[in-house]
Structures are given as structure tokens and as C-alpha cells.
Design a protein around this nucleic acid. Structure first.
Length: 110
DNA sequence: CGCAGATGGCTAG
DNA sequence: CTAGCCATCTGCG
């Protein structure tokens, strides 16, 4: 593990935004992208997948704009997603058995 | 409802 | 410098 490279400006913004998310609140990739002044949510997901700051950065508070969970720990399905939902439930954000957000009001923009 | 294309930045060679 | 990648998004059939 010698990939301790220098975090890019975008990554720092992403992590900073996540830390700005209050407890019990979630954000979407696209929304986060707009906050970062970026038009690609893909870049956001990539940075989170790399997440050199995990688990210092609550990347589990980021979901898709379709109210879907999205992915976690580099996977779009599996036990990782279950854990992600579990963490959000503990914060007050409930999801459907299929992985869909029940309370869209929990989504806030940074 | 399902698929393909677009889109912007990151990593690796 | 070039090419491929991404936990996405949007549009079209």
C-alpha cells in the first residue's frame, strides 16, 4: 500500500463536503457535483471509491439521485450495500428492502 | 421499461 | 501526452 498520493483539489472538496453533511442527512452524487461546481457525478464516485480518507470520510452518506443506495466499498451490490443502509438507518435515514430511500427529505445540499 | 451515450475528472502507461 | 475507468446521469426507442 504505497499509494498515498497527494489528494487532488476535487477530492478535498468532496471529502470536505461530506464532512459538512449533518448527522442523519444524505446527499446525492449529482447534488454534490453541483456543489463542487462539477458536471460529472462519475468523478465523485471514483474519488469515493478510491477514498484514501476512508473511513474518516462518511462516504456512506452519499447516494444516487434516484434515491437509490448506489454503491459502497467499491461494490454496487452485496453485503457492503447492506452495511451502508445499516449505517444510514442508525443515523435516522431509512431505506426500502430494495435499497431505495424512504425519506427524500433527508437529502440536503451542501 | 430498458439500453446506449454522454460527461468530467482520475489513474496508469 | 494518450487511453481507459467510474459507487453516475440523461435521453431516446
Amino acid at each position: 500500500m504505497k499509494n498515498q498520493r497527494t489528494p487532488t483539489l476535487f477530492e478535498q472538496k468532496i471529502y470536505d463536503a461530506l464532512l459538512h453533511i449533518p448527522k442523519g442527512r444524505v446527499t446525492t452524487y449529482k447534488l454534490l457535483a453541483q456543489t463542487l461546481r462539477c458536471r460529472s457525478a462519475q468523478a465523485i464516485g471514483q474519488a469515493l471509491k478510491r477514498n484514501p480518507f476512508a473511513p474518516e470520510v462518511p462516504c456512506h452518506r452519499v447516494i444516487r439521485s434516484d434515491h437509490h443506495l448506489g454503491g459502497f466499498q467499491g461494490k454496487r451490490a452485496g453485503a457492503s450495500i447492506r452495511e451502508k443502509t445499516r449505517l444510514l438507518e442508525q443515523e435516522g435515514v431509512l431505506f426500502n428492502p430494495e435499497g431505495f430511500l424512504i425519506d427524500p427529505d433527508r437529502i440536503v445540499q451542501i
